[in-house]
């Protein structure tokens, strides 16, 4: 396996009942790149990244993360792989019953077990400053706006220094200004933490701002793969319908 490949997916198939959501889906994520997976709602994008962290089991094909077939991993090995992956959920998925600080501490205590309380506090303050919300430390998630929740959620994901980031619709439901800010943050995370990322989106502005490479999904299959410029110049009707704005 190529040393630069961090995730390799081969002929992935996933069905829900009779509905085939992913049909022979293949992709490679290279070290340090932002790969945008673009597609209409219901094209299987979110299912794809949930399969990568084995939140969903797939029917056929293989997923290799850091060269390990994730289907063959036992509970402990899977936990080790998951510790290296940050997952930003569409809804933010902040724990409602905890303050922002407790939300950030939650993965830190469990993954970075050797840190002292002082080091944990420093790390939390650092990531909160990175997402521009240093003053939200003692707030409850219910006191935060949609954009703030996404930022805190991103902070919670990066606080454990993941090597891979999986973003599930990071800008959905946000106003254009906040969406742009989130896109900037995604790029900042890539540069600062040297992460490799898969960004699932149907927001073309987010794709334009963040993509090093794009894969377009259509009916559970790879429809086109290439650089942003190739998509912008394409005459294909489906691609044009995405990139017309």
């Amino acid at each position: 396996m190529d040393k630069d490949i961090v995730i390799e997916i081969d002929n992935l198939k996933k069905k829900f009942g009779d509905q085939e959501v992913l049909k022979n889906m293949s992709l490679k994520l290279f070290n340090g790149e932002n790969l945008v997976v673009l597609g209409k709602s219901g094209s299987g994008k979110s299912v794809l990244i949930k399969c990568i962290v084995r939140l969903l089991n797939y029917d056929e094909g293989t997923i290799n993360v850091f060269g390990k077939d994730i289907r063959l991993l036992n509970k402990k090995e899977l936990a080790e792989v998951r510790q290296k992956i940050g997952f930003l959920f569409q809804s933010g998925a902040l724990y409602d019953s905890m303050t922002v600080k407790e939300n950030l501490e939650f993965p830190l205590i469990r993954i970075k077990k050797n840190l002292t309380q002082k080091e944990r506090n420093e790390k939390i303050n650092e990531v909160l400053e990175n997402v521009g919300l240093a003053d939200a430390l003692n707030k409850m998630p219910s006191q935060l706006s949609g954009g703030m929740r996404k930022r805190i959620s991103l902070a919670r994901t990066i606080v454990v220094d993941p090597m891979i980031m999986l973003y599930d619709e990071p800008t959905t439901g946000l106003d254009p200004v906040t969406s742009d800010e989130i896109s900037v943050l995604i790029n900042d995370v890539q540069k600062k933490y040297k992460t490799s990322s898969i960004i699932i989106t149907h927001d073309i502005e987010c794709a334009r701002a963040t993509a090093n490479r794009i894969i377009m999904l259509q009916n559970g299959e790879t429809f086109k793969e290439g650089k942003l410029e190739e998509f912008e110049k394409s005459d294909d009707k489906i691609i044009k319908s995405f990139f017309k704005s």
């Binding site: 080790e80 992956i85 569409q90 939650f106």
Partner: peptide, 15 residues
Amino acid sequence: MKVTEQIESMEVSAT
């Protein structure tokens, strides 16, 4: 927590 993906979030945090 299930509906808002908090349980899945815990799972991917290796908890």
